[in-house]
Design a protein around this nucleic acid. Sequence first.
DNA 1: AATGAATGAGAGTTCATTCAT
DNA 2: AATGAATGAACTCTCATTCAT
Lengths: 213, 213, 213, 213
Amino acid sequence: MVGHESPPEPRRRPRQARAQRTVEAIVEAGARVFAERGYAGSTTNHIALRAGVSVGSLYEYFPNKDAILAEVADRHVQRMIGPVIELLDTAEPAPEGLPDWLDRFVERMLAVHLESPELHRLLLEEAPHHPAIDACVLQMETSLAHRVRTLFERDAGVSLRDPDTAAHLVVQTVEALTHRFAHHGIHELSPQAFVAEVTRLLAGYLERSRRGA
Amino acid sequence: MVGHESPPEPRRRPRQARAQRTVEAIVEAGARVFAERGYAGSTTNHIALRAGVSVGSLYEYFPNKDAILAEVADRHVQRMIGPVIELLDTAEPAPEGLPDWLDRFVERMLAVHLESPELHRLLLEEAPHHPAIDACVLQMETSLAHRVRTLFERDAGVSLRDPDTAAHLVVQTVEALTHRFAHHGIHELSPQAFVAEVTRLLAGYLERSRRGA
Amino acid sequence: MVGHESPPEPRRRPRQARAQRTVEAIVEAGARVFAERGYAGSTTNHIALRAGVSVGSLYEYFPNKDAILAEVADRHVQRMIGPVIELLDTAEPAPEGLPDWLDRFVERMLAVHLESPELHRLLLEEAPHHPAIDACVLQMETSLAHRVRTLFERDAGVSLRDPDTAAHLVVQTVEALTHRFAHHGIHELSPQAFVAEVTRLLAGYLERSRRGA
Amino acid sequence: MVGHESPPEPRRRPRQARAQRTVEAIVEAGARVFAERGYAGSTTNHIALRAGVSVGSLYEYFPNKDAILAEVADRHVQRMIGPVIELLDTAEPAPEGLPDWLDRFVERMLAVHLESPELHRLLLEEAPHHPAIDACVLQMETSLAHRVRTLFERDAGVSLRDPDTAAHLVVQTVEALTHRFAHHGIHELSPQAFVAEVTRLLAGYLERSRRGA
DNA sequence: AATGAATGAGAGTTCATTCAT
DNA sequence: AATGAATGAACTCTCATTCAT
């Protein structure tokens, strides 16, 4: 009769799993509520309600409202740069193909910006500049810049005088322009034309910046 | 008083010199307090206190907190673009001098961003996207882009395929990069080097974009 | 939060016994505070304090000050007309007894007015004419008039030309006179004498109004 | 050359006349503003503005908001009872004509209530029970009751047991019923029918109350 | 005598957070 | 672990009143 009365599953698991689900629900609810109502307009009660959880539970897992924002921001940024990093990491060494992958880079950045624009805008523009968010964004940029620089260096055709600066400028420019375009557009410019134009902008820069030039 | 809901009284226009001084003090205090504490962290009482004025006086001239922000934003933007517009309007027609005035343009934009960076950051990044601010910023950009385009067209050496788009991209890029640089810098890059690099970025683009190219 | 203006959240319905007690305390405190200080002189903080509850709790259950007044009014009216309606509903059919039940009717109305005269005065005279209160009062009157009319019709001795109008006049007259008497009296007139006099007034009217007359 | 340089008009007159006009303007503006926006909804600034006067001037002549209300109330009551008193004072001694002048009394009271109902309602129902208003109303009632009593006594046909009480009841009843009717009506009852009905009500009472009865 | 800018106590209301259940 | 009732400091905004001009 030993080991008979208790199911083989560990006892603590369900609790932890439940807790995990609760946290998950809160973060997701947070993302939606923040996106819909802005930071100041969102209350912890809204979020708890949307998560199907009581405020008490919310405070069981997050010390305050900002902590929810930080988590939401972190996840959002991770989800955003994932595809971009993947692209950068799998880029073929192709000297003459520079414009080609620039094109693909810009294209993917734009795609990523168009995905959940409200949340994105919130995090980058409206949210009080919480250290956590600032850190997130800087880290994202550094991470991308680092990979872009690696590509520059690996690519024989692009041997720049100051590859690090170039990489940062490129990343910042693409980030800023796609962000802007995703939100306000530029006249009637189509996304394709926009991507082409930004690619041209960067290609010109990189050619000019070659060490030999 | 339920169901009586009289419309919010129109605010007083300052007529006497004393009133004018009060308004001035409120706007200036608003700029400072907003810059120091952020939008949400600033209260109308803070602003009134800093202005050396009672809350009542504040509400005599501004219907609510947002209205103060709008006024602060408007003045800030006017003060910011003034020098840049002046530069653009007095630029000499100089085909071969393109890099030269690009350089001066970037330089002045950076100077302008370094002036009251906290306030600037507030208005562009943190403030809830108040229509008034959005309008301000878009108008500023349009205004600059228009002048830049005029310069492009007047300058024989830069006959672009799509001068309008190019002008917008240039303005947005400069705005974004200088803004960013003013706030976070890029490693140890000096302001001079930064300006030179951005100039190179834009010059490459414009050369590439020539109609003949 | 400009232009976000979320609709006022629907208030919580008390579910737990504790919450029910809180609501009860607020309504009772409201009745007292309103009666003592008048509507304008009463603040939500006064009421909360008197109820032994925080303002926050008050707003948990009532969207605003008026809502408290409405609830207080409703309860007061219900409590007031209860005894009167009971009297009317149990009146014996007694043709020659008309003066008798008129007497009892006036007597009970006076009793009811003497009960919590301050609150009563507030609701009928001072309170901003909130729809809820108006409705309450009209409904009360209609309700009483309807029953009075039924009594008239049932009573063979009182077959009026226009029983509906008569019923309304009777109810309004009794209401107005007892209300007045309860608050200011008439010289040194004793309550008994007052009741007798009003009964005489009405009896005269009803006799005169008989169809045959 | 004596008495030559100064015009014969007294110097102070213009100032007083102007002041008188100012007071007049304020009281009239007060009446309108109170009637339109209710007591709480009216501000001294509203009243001053409407009167074409500065707040400062308003406080030159009235110590506070209540004082304006009191004056407005007083004038209103005077204007109201004027015609009624005139009627009572010129009534012919006419024993058999009792119903006749009751009819005219009720009719004139109704007319008077229909004149500026908003202001009237404000003063009797909404305004905080300011002593001044209470006094006004009581005085009005006393004044009318006194005259009615005189009529009763003069009129041989109506020799009541307690003429004073009867007079008060009559006045109060007419006041209450016409007030009510002017504001809410009774079903579809026409004003004529209403007057007739109230007359009947009172006539019945007075007949019953004769000493001999 | 008149102006109207300035005052500031105090109103109603919100919401992040706590804690008894 | 979870609930949700309770908290209360803090906010925005009003308006009767004062007083320098």
